[in-house]
Design a protein around this nucleic acid. Sequence first.
DNA 1: CACCAGGCAAGTA
DNA 2: TACTTGCATGGT
Length: 223
Amino acid sequence: MKSPKALLKKIYNDLYQAFGPRNWWPAESAFEVMIGAILTQNTSWNNVEKAIRNLKKKGVLSPEGIRNLSKLKLAYLIKPAGYYRVKTGRLKAFVNFLFEEYKGNINRMKLESVETLREKLLKIHGIGPETADSILLYALEKPIFVVDAYTRRILSRHKLISAKASYNEIQGLFMNNLPKDEKLFNEYHALFVHLGKTLCKKIPKCDICPIKGIEKGKVKINN
DNA sequence: CACCAGGCAAGTA
DNA sequence: TACTTGCATGGT
């Protein structure tokens, strides 16, 4: 039990054993996932849910709905999610992209390769690596691993990565050592978030962390 | 009361 | 390249 492959598999198995399937992403449509991915940037999901509810209540949770809304009204509706002025611009930039590239049609978007999509998403103002990958994995069902603050914290705590490993390094650790399986990546990230939100949060010492018996010390990231 | 949450861009050195 | 700062609400 010392190769990164075996280790990452074991962590997954331990978490799945402990928490079971998480059924991610919590949303009723691919577009809702995309909007949620932007709204949840450095923001608690609880606050995002309020904003999503507001959008649904107004019947504007669609590419057309967001596009036709004035910035002022959009800002008001997403206010509970925080950074509402910034996020209004980001949502607008994103839906503009959807219409320019795909006529506002998500199915059209899904036809493109994950590599092409990722490049395009990263060019949109307000879409960084995590948001892009969340959209790719959870909205478009492309096999890509999402790295977030929880992932970083958990791996770092178990001394599997250095504290200042880059996004791409961490993503590579998973993608180079696991089968490129969308279902697996989906569940894996969801399990990390669940662990981070529950145990790691409340129990600083991590005494009852489900990830047990792993070898301490850094895992080789490059290979 | 302080602290932080499922980031990102822009500015500085 | 490698820090630092602004953005903002709501829960604990």
